[in-house]
Nucleic acid binder design. Structure first.
Lengths: 215, 215
DNA sequence: ATCCTTATTTAAACTAATTCCAAATAATTT
DNA sequence: AAATTATTTGGAATTAGTTTAAATAAGGAT
């Protein structure tokens, strides 16, 4: 069984030493390069195409989010394991979207780091619990409490039908109301929510969970 | 340090035996009950409030998705670890949305099962790789290749503006075109996509990644 | 108990958006 | 060269939607 080759990309010397020390305790791992900045890293990648690249992208001037794309184009077979102290959800979503295999925070312990490297090398994914919770939050955020939506039950009913693509006439006939009633409701809805168009209303409804997200 | 108490809820006798055998190999775990159907399970929960409930919800007549809600209301402190052979993404999303802590498939190996139990007992979450990939797919699906969308570049441009809430007149002035041009484009778009309303178009655009999802 | 606010309902007159039909030009494919 | 697709436009007819105004009912506040 051949060894898992690893490159360490971190601007901080001490982190590199720590990772090296930790990883060298496992026979199946082999560190083929260390890099303190992007230029160094790309050189390592060209020469070794390691199985796993351990990266902290959050180091201005040395590495940043765009480094991920560069790693992928320089060494497409290398899997990326991020270890970052980043706390910005948007950044993290962006990085996950970018297709890294694994994501740890700097507070993870030895066991998690080793498990993450193993999973990454096996082409699997690994996210530490904090990141996993962020991901779940994005995917499975509880629909907001409808009581937080400043719309009356009737109005919400009408929003659903509007989002369903129905025009005032159809909604009126479905609810046995005058079309004028629907127009009034709709105007009130738009005023309350400060929206200007049906499109915005549809997006609002999806966002607030009034209707099921198409995605 | 007190033991992690576990209840096993699975209609299949052999699975229960297998789990029991596996779990009993670890001193820190203690099985406080086994259940082959929902009624038995609720009894176990009332008597023991175990830290972890291992459940296969996909067993008609014995357990189903609604069992999860019942577990949570009967024993709110128990964390739920699902082990299921379910392959329906919609089901799985539904279950994860319902707030289970962990989700394994029946093809997971011993190490994963034990890691999952440990994580669940620590109030953490654990998803095996297959489930994790489903979850990532839900929120981080790559925008579909625009070449798969049967719209011309101009049409896509107009879809974006429509979704942005702009009406024909505004779009026309933005693109220096006649409003009639916009109407024609929009009609063609609707015909091509077999859509009947602006709302459907907005949802289509979100779904296909033509515009960024609001969620 | 009365007042006030919000929710719900409706209409007439008006304005604006949209569709239908028809067609021209340019670019691409066959 | 012919056919298809993409892009553009206009006039007439239709339809949807806005504005303004108002009535009824329900619930909360004083």
């Amino acid at each position: 069984m051949s060894k898992t080759t690893i490159a360490i990309a971190d601007a901080q010397y001490l982190i590199r030493v720590g990772l090296r020390h930790l990883i060298e305790g496992f026979e199946q791992f082999e560190i083929v390069g260390e890099a303190g900045c992007e230029k160094e890293l790309l050189e390592v990648l060209e020469n070794h195409s390691p199985n796993v690249v351990i990266l902290d992208y959050q180091q201005p001037k040395n590495f940043d989010i765009s480094s991920i794309e560069k790693i992928k184009s320089t060494s497409p077979k290398s899997k990326i394991l991020v270890i970052s102290g980043d706390n910005e959800k948007e950044n993290i979503y962006n990085v996950v979207q970018n297709g890294v295999s694994s994501f740890l925070t700097k507070s993870c312990d030895e066991e998690e780091i080793i498990n993450a490297i193993k999973a990454t090398a096996k082409q699997e994914k690994f996210f530490c619990n904090k990141i996993l919770n962020f991901i779940l939050e994005k995917s499975f955020a509880k629909p907001e409490d409808c009581s937080l939506i400043p719309l009356s039950p009737r109005e919400i009913e009408i929003v659903r039908l509007v989002v369903d693509g129905k025009i005032a006439k159809e909604i009126a006939s479905e609810l046995n109301l005058s079309t004028h009633t629907i127009y009034t409701h709709r105007k009130n809805i738009m005023n309350k929510l400060e929206l200007k168009s049906t499109s915005e209303l549809v997006l609002y409804a999806v966002e607030k969970g009034i209707v099921k997200s198409p995605v």
